[in-house]
């Protein structure tokens, strides 16, 4: 998990659509330009986060997989 994000969200063990719902909620507390780092275990989250960012206009700075865990960094727009 990148430690330099403004806020982190642990979505491990959650299944669709909870990671997206929690991400959306966490983003509302952030100011424009601040970042949110998310860790998830739902394999569907890889595609879902891309779609979520594309639709909502937030920037998906990075997404990666490591030992069955997915990490995302989103910058609020």
């Amino acid at each position: 998990m990148s430690t330099n994000a403004t806020q982190t969200l642990d979505a491990r063990g959650m299944n669709c659509p909870l990671p997206i719902l929690r991400t959306k909620k966490a983003l509302t507390d952030l100011a424009k330009g601040e970042t949110l780092a998310i860790t998830a275990t739902d394999p569907g989250s890889l595609k879902d986060m891309q779609a979520f960012c594309k639709q909502t206009g937030h920037e998906l700075v990075s997404s990666s997989e490591h030992r069955g865990e997915f990490e995302f960094l989103i910058r609020k727009s």
């Binding site: 959650m14 299944n15 659509p17 909870l18 739902d42």
Partner: peptide
């Protein structure tokens, strides 16, 4: 399986 409860999803809808 970490799936949301119906209560939880309904609250998310209202939120």
């Amino acid at each position: 399986k970490g799936v949301a409860s119906i209560d939880e999803l309904r609250s998310a809808c209202l939120e």
